[in-house]
Design a protein around this nucleic acid. Structure first.
Lengths: 157, 157
DNA sequence: TAAATTCCTGACTGAAATAGTCAGGAATTA
DNA sequence: TAATTCCTGACTATTTCAGTCAGGAATTTA
């Protein structure tokens, strides 16, 4: 498994979308500015998130990205797996032929670790953070700071 | 946080030592051969493990490495942290100045995730695997296959 | 004391992943 | 039709991973 900044970028962006679900599609340019992630890099990540069916792209003016499922059905594990390829930590990909055809010494350890970690990250859904008061205050601050949604009906004043 | 092959190498090597604690110090050359990890790379990893006080080096013939604490006091988290620098997943290193001096949107998420993950990996100690019968069978097989400890009093026949 | 063994250190290298850039096309809205 | 935004692919720089190499320091054994 890989748990790197790449995955963090993806989760951060997804959180941003989840937190603004009511305001309609969010543009990548918006996320790029607010979260400090390069636009083109975001586009690469979102290509993968789209292929995994986590987000839907809406083209044209007023478009952007929105969640493809409800926030309580999207886990951190889903997101990380989408961009980082695999969560499996065994050398052999779970096949058990890691050491000259046999299971290696630590096959069991990694296998179990992968399972537990997966379960753990699967249990954390986006909506757990969307409804917190302290997070929502932060969101408001940021939205005002960056003047988000100014040219929309639901603009932040 | 990073959870890469680097950490797996380190844990694998530590497991190997823990599993052979009774046979005295284990040489890196031995681990290199049995686990298929380059010797020089192991030396780099063990320099870090030593600095963290997880292993002790014994020089000279018959020397090698042994655990600096008992196996029930060494967790997977300890090992990964030693070689991968940090388990912390926040952008700001927990300081909370990730977004123009304020906490970023996902600070809370990463902070909590780091804590949970750390607790989780801290709970997995080396000795949990040392005493399993299925693992011990594997060890015996490997030791015979590679002719380990042949020139020692406790040689595997 | 000499030789062998093993840890230990630092500098270097190739390959891959990460992160970002650039240019342009496709769909949609106004 | 023009503006907006997604979408795609090729390209580049930087960092990390993994491994190599050369040599020195401590220790044991002969």
């Amino acid at each position: 498994m890989k748990l790197s900044t790449k995955g963090r970028y993806a989760v951060t962006a997804m959180m941003d979308i989840a937190l603004h679900e009511k305001q309609g599609p969010i543009t990548l340019a918006d996320i790029s500015q607010c979260q400090g992630i390069s636009l083109s890099y975001l586009e690469q990540l979102f290509a993968k998130l789209r292929k995994q069916g986590l987000v839907k792209g809406v083209r044209g003016p007023g478009g952007g990205y929105r969640l493809a499922k409800s926030a309580d059905q999207i886990s951190v594990a889903d997101i990380i797996q989408s961009v980082d390829e695999k969560l499996d930590m065994t050398k052999c990909g779970g096949r058990g032929n890691c050491s000259s055809g046999e299971k290696c010494l630590t096959h069991q350890l990694w296998f179990e670790l992968s399972c537990k970690l997966y379960k753990f990250l699967s249990g954390i859904k986006l909506d757990q953070y969307v409804n917190r008061p302290e997070i929502n205050e932060l969101v408001k601050k940021q939205d005002t700071q960056y003047g988000r949604f100014l040219n929309r009906s639901n603009a932040v004043v």
